[in-house]
Design a protein around this nucleic acid. Structure first.
Lengths: 195, 195
DNA sequence: CCAATTAATGAGTATGCACTCACCGAGCAA
DNA sequence: TTGCTCGGTGAGTGCATACTCATTAATTGG
């Protein structure tokens, strides 16, 4: 890679980093492209050499975040046998990525149709992971009592609702929760399709 | 009231009715004042004879809705002794007013500070009613298992979270839920102050 | 070393929006 | 009837913002 290409890549990364931070702080709708450019230390016009429009910057950022996120989860699922530990660590990972995702989820209903559709399609990726975690839980027939981080209530509204449909019982002094059998089918149906 | 005054009042009501409907359909942020005027069948400029700006139209509409809502709840609390019935009917009333409130709640994080502050201040009205319902529940020491309508998850995010911290037990064949005692104080603290 | 390439610049354009104001005409008081 | 009042009108203004493009300057290949 020659000097020009390296410089171009560097600029692109500055834009993405700046965009992510400002989007988390102020939301996407309330962030002007000129502000992103300023924060990245480049001219306003430069931003549009790297991204054809604001929406594509959002989508690209989302894809990058999802890719990191997805790799972490995949590894976790392969490595962790115990569902209690798996679910707990799974939620830790979600929480770590919380900022940008929840900023997206918060504003999602206000986006134009086109952008909203793109984001919702990608949300199904997250559902798929969650489904794998549930699969393991069903095999082992037990779930630990875990709070879905409240910031994810919106993104995972449906999941959260179904998580509340648990039966609970006490085992060795601590409360253990188990999904009602009738719920499991519905939950899987809900998590998988969409696209 | 002479013909002129009557006409003015009529126009004002047309604006409010049109605004409410469009806000519910498309959200407040994505509705232009010119669209409200068009839906109300008046000139764009006329809207600003009745309301100094868009925000004040939103706030006025919110106050009107809250006032209706609040009167209904007050009456319900006075008339209904049984908490199970009270809570259930309380949620029915909320659900009936759901459209405009949830459109507000959905967009709230994206509003400018000034408008957001005004709306949050008014949300405390709703909290106060909810607190009275909880008070009655604490006296009677029992809550029916009730789903907070999912559309209200956002507006009542905190409340919803605390509602999940219940102990449950089976009585006469049906599940009865009771708040954990340690939660009740926290919940009361959370619901009352804010302003 | 020179000409071609290309990343970067930032003033400029197009658009959409909240809000204004000079003007109009129906209703009212005399 | 007459002149005034005032609600209504809609083209116009100012502003914010996404996006463009003629120009500049650094880098490259020959």
């Amino acid at each position: 890679m020659n000097k020009r290409q390296a410089q171009k890549q560097f600029t692109r990364e500055k834009i993405i980093a700046a965009a992510k931070q400002i989007f988390i702080e102020k939301g996407i709708i309330n962030t002007a492209t000129s502000q992103i450019a300023e924060a990245a230390g480049i001219a306003h016009g430069t931003l549009f050499l790297h991204f054809p429009n604001k929406d594509s910057l959002v989508v690209e950022l989302l894809d990058a975040e999802l890719s990191k996120f997805s790799n972490n989860i995949k590894q976790l699922i392969v490595e962790t046998a115990d569902v209690n530990i798996l679910l707990s660590q799974y939620l830790d990972i979600i929480q770590a990525e919380e900022g940008f995702f929840s900023s997206l989820a918060r504003e999602l209903p206000n986006y134009k149709d086109e952008l909203r559709r793109k984001i919702l399609f990608r949300e199904s990726l997250i559902r798929e992971h969650f489904h794998q975690v549930i699969e393991k839980g069903i095999e082992q027939n037990i779930y630990a009592q875990v709070d879905i981080p409240s910031a994810l209530t919106f993104l995972f509204g449906t999941i959260n609702y179904y998580l509340s449909l648990k039966t609970s019982f006490v085992q060795q002094g601590s409360v253990i929760e188990k999904f009602k059998p009738s719920i499991i089918k519905t939950m899987k149906d809900l998590l998988l399709p969409v696209q």
